[in-house]
Amino acid sequence: MPTAPTPRTWVVGEVVTAAKMNEIRDAFNFLLNPPIFELTHSGSISPATSTNALMPFNGETIDRDNGHNTVTNNSRYTSQTAGYYMLTGGVGFTSNGTGKREMTLLVNGVDEYYPSSIPGLAAGFTGMTSAGRVYLAVNDYAEVQVWQNSGGALATNSTKGGPRFGGHWISK
Rank of each mutant, 00 (worst) to 15 (best):
L106Q: 13
R25L: 15
K100N: 10
T98Q: 03
P35I: 02
Y77I: 11
T49R: 01
S117W: 00
I62W: 11
P7S: 10
G89Y: 02
T104W: 02
F57D: 07
N29P: 00
T61C: 02
A123D: 14
L54T: 12
L54C: 06
G97R: 05
N66K: 14
N96M: 08
E112W: 03
T40P: 01
S75Q: 15
N33G: 06
A122T: 14
T51Q: 07
L32P: 08
E14N: 04
G97K: 04
G13V: 12
M86W: 13
T72H: 02
S79V: 04
S95E: 09
L105H: 07
M55E: 11
T40Y: 11
N66A: 15
Y85W: 11
A82T: 15
A122D: 14
A53Q: 15
E112C: 00
N29I: 12
N22F: 02
G13T: 10
S117Q: 12
I24K: 00
P115V: 09
T104F: 02
Y77P: 05
S50R: 09
R64G: 14
F37K: 07
T126A: 10
I45M: 06
H68L: 03
T49G: 06
G83F: 00
V12G: 08
M55Q: 07
M103T: 13
P119E: 05
T81M: 04
N74S: 03
E38I: 14
K20E: 08
D111T: 15
